[in-house]
């Protein structure tokens, strides 16, 4: 299975923060052939260990999060579902949005729109906050109460598709695209002799404040950690200085959240191998799992490698496939020589 197929399959699985089960199952299925041990902890993290077999070997952890932004049902009105957001969602994209309601037998729904004539001049063109929107599942109040209890998770409808020849577009590319990178990376390293143990932490609840990574990093207790996440790609409406080029390769994080030696070693590999990369300077909290991992136990040397992604947290998150392939190549080469450079 090539990268695009794998990322599409992982992205189509459902796993909003705290309700990651279906996504976890899919990821574990693809990751387990490359792990000596694989387990799930109390927070739902996947921890997959590949030992190098050497006495006293140190441990490099690769981390991506499995959860996606989503929603949770909070109540019912006239058969419609009230909901809250799980993670940062721009409610301006919700009207007329397709939803998948994750009841045992998932239900189809759409976010209904107040028709224009029902709005005052003042309200027209004003966004409706999420608490004024409702999911229409085509049920009566009684049916809805019975079938969709409060606490039922919801994700964007639709899966993942190509956009043109080179882009991949769909929900949950943040951060399944990076979970897929880790799986392809482990596949590429299969059978290779390594100087260190490799551990994959596929974390939960990142979108609610990097919660899974807190316990995941504690139990893995790695020496180094490379976090793979998405960053903002250039779009016509986004500020140029806060976005990165789709097609420009890995965005490598620089700043207090990241260990300089580890980061420089990754950059060095990129340079030596002639792989395109870009630097993402982050002055404080990176907002990624790298933030809690860095201060886990007595500290972990952390680095961040990001994939540029357009329209983050929308149903149409879009990435360039060549950027993901670039990251797979970069980190494969880095890990093969990590024993020498670290």
């Amino acid at each position: 299975m090539d990268y695009a197929q794998l990322a599409s399959e992982l992205g189509s699985a459902c796993g909003p923060s705290g309700y990651e089960d279906a996504a976890r199952e899919k990821i574990a299925e693809y990751l387990s052939p490359y792990a000596d041990e694989i387990k799930t902890d109390a927070m739902g993290n996947i921890i997959a260990m590949r030992r190098c077999g050497k006495q006293g070997a140190r441990c490099l952890m690769l981390c991506a999060h499995m959860d996606e932004v989503g929603f949770v049902v909070t109540g019912h009105e006239r058969g419609y579902l009230r909901f809250a957001c799980l993670g940062g969602v721009d409610a301006r994209m919700l009207p007329a949005c397709e939803m998948r309601v994750l009841t045992p037998e998932p239900l189809y729904g759409v976010v209904d729109v107040m028709p224009v004539h029902a709005l005052t001049k003042d309200e027209q063109g004003k966004p409706l906050p999420a608490d004024k929107l409702f999911i229409d599942v085509g049920l009566s109040q009684e049916q809805a109460e019975q079938l969709v209890p409060p606490g039922t998770p919801v994700v964007y409808g639709g899966g993942v598709q190509r956009l043109g020849a080179e882009m991949l577009c769909g929900k949950a590319m943040d951060d399944r695209s990076c979970a897929a990178i880790i799986i392809k990376l482990m596949e590429a390293l299969k059978g290779a002799e390594l100087d260190m143990d490799l551990c994959c932490l596929i974390s939960t609840q990142e979108e609610l404040g990097t919660r899974g990574a807190v316990t995941g990093a504690y139990s893995v207790s790695p020496d180094w950690a490379i976090v793979l996440d998405v960053t903002h790609a250039e779009t016509p409406d986004a500020p140029k200085h806060r976005t990165f080029k789709s097609g420009g390769g890995a965005a490598i994080g620089v700043g207090p959240n990241f260990n300089k030696r580890l980061t420089d070693a990754i950059i060095g590999t990129a340079k030596e191998c002639g792989l395109e990369y870009q630097l993402e300077v982050i002055s404080g909290n990176s907002g990624t799992d790298a933030w809690p991992i860095q201060v886990s136990r007595s500290g972990v040397a952390a680095a961040l490698v990001s994939l540029p992604l357009k329209y983050m947290h929308s149903p149409v998150e879009t990435l360039k496939i060549s950027d993901a392939e670039n990251i797979i190549e970069l980190l494969t080469k880095f890990i093969l020589r990590a024993g020498e450079v670290l």
Partner: peptide, 28 residues
Amino acid sequence: DRRVLIGKRVYAGADRLDGVIGIKAYHL
């Protein structure tokens, strides 16, 4: 109502090419 356009998939042109109406990330 332009509110229904954001974040939606469309088919563009006579050849029905896949397209999306994006919006910059909420973080920005």
